[in-house]
Amino acid sequence: MLGSILSNILLVLGCSFLAAGLKFSESSFQATAAQTSASLMTLACITLVIPAAFHSTRENGADSDMHELLIISRGTSIILLGIYVAYLYFQLKSHSNLFEATPQRNQHGEIIEEDKEDPRMSTVAAGIALLGVTVVTAFCADYLVASIEETAERYHIPKIFIGVILLPLVGNAAEHVTAVWMAHKGKMEITITIAVGSSIQIAVFVVPLLVIVGWITGHDLSLFFANFETITLFASVLLVNLLLQDGKSNYMEGLMLVGLYIVIALAFWVS
């Protein structure tokens, strides 16, 4: 989960800014919508920091405060799921106009006309194709996860590096390519929706849902992450927030995001 979030907000968004920077000197997008998404990502990050901070301030061991961590995690998960539902309503219904595409301009300030594309698949066909690809991806992911142990031993790759860096890259490859391609075509709203929106989906929906499902099935899952992972996520979200707040992007901002991702990957390699 952590690796997927990091790859989306750093690598995918960074490569997208780079791709857009190769064609446009500066790309624009809806600052309000982007900042709302980034702020929600920050909220999710803070909810992961709180359990880690709670654990670090306790004098007892991890086993003794596990009950308190579970109470905090389960209550937080319920709140996050409610916020995610409200965010969907905000994005798709009440403030959908904020997520409409911003016209791109060339160096002379003239609006660049977008190429209109007619749909080539019906809704039913697209749904069936998406379902089929999801099933195939699930089997591939299961096989990939099962081979981690052997791969780590054979090639002397740290398991945490495989889990946080390599698996998210392989699992989300199609999504990554789509985000970069949309950025190169000047459709930054779609790019940010894919990159930041996917991270929000994982942090505000998938992770809390896993905690709730674990609660129902009798598995003690919490939102507690190790200090290093928590600090890494917080620093990444902070940088993304700073870069999105002006509603503009360029290739230099893309380099910053990709550079931070490489530094984090290096840290996980030696950890």
Score class of each variant (00 low, 15 high):
residue 18 L to A: 12
residue 42 T to A: 15
residue 13 L to P: 01
residue 12 V to M: 07
residue 50 I to V: 15
residue 35 Q to I: 10
residue 23 K to A: 08
residue 23 K to M: 09
residue 58 R to W: 15
residue 79 I to G: 00
residue 56 S to I: 08
residue 58 R to Y: 15
residue 77 S to W: 08
residue 50 I to S: 05
residue 17 F to M: 08
residue 47 T to W: 09
residue 54 F to Y: 15
residue 78 I to E: 04
residue 54 F to T: 03
residue 30 Q to P: 04
residue 70 L to K: 12
residue 22 L to E: 14
residue 35 Q to K: 13
residue 65 D to S: 03
residue 52 A to Q: 08
residue 72 I to L: 14
residue 41 M to R: 06
residue 37 S to H: 09
residue 14 G to K: 03
residue 68 E to S: 09
residue 65 D to E: 13
residue 62 A to G: 11
residue 73 S to Q: 05
residue 31 A to W: 15
residue 37 S to T: 08
residue 37 S to F: 11
residue 49 V to G: 02
residue 48 L to S: 03
residue 59 E to I: 13
residue 52 A to D: 02
residue 25 S to T: 11
residue 26 E to V: 10
residue 18 L to F: 10
residue 44 A to H: 02
residue 73 S to K: 03
residue 66 M to S: 12
residue 27 S to C: 15
residue 79 I to R: 01
residue 9 I to T: 06
residue 31 A to R: 13
residue 52 A to K: 00
residue 45 C to I: 05
residue 35 Q to E: 14
residue 12 V to T: 15
residue 66 M to P: 01
residue 46 I to F: 15
residue 20 A to G: 04
residue 31 A to I: 04
residue 38 A to H: 10
residue 58 R to C: 13
residue 65 D to H: 12
residue 47 T to Q: 06
residue 40 L to C: 07
residue 32 T to A: 11
residue 34 A to I: 10
residue 31 A to F: 12
residue 33 A to Q: 02
residue 69 L to G: 00
residue 58 R to M: 14
residue 35 Q to T: 14
residue 69 L to D: 00
residue 28 S to T: 09
residue 20 A to Y: 02
residue 45 C to H: 02
residue 53 A to K: 04
residue 53 A to S: 08
residue 79 I to A: 08
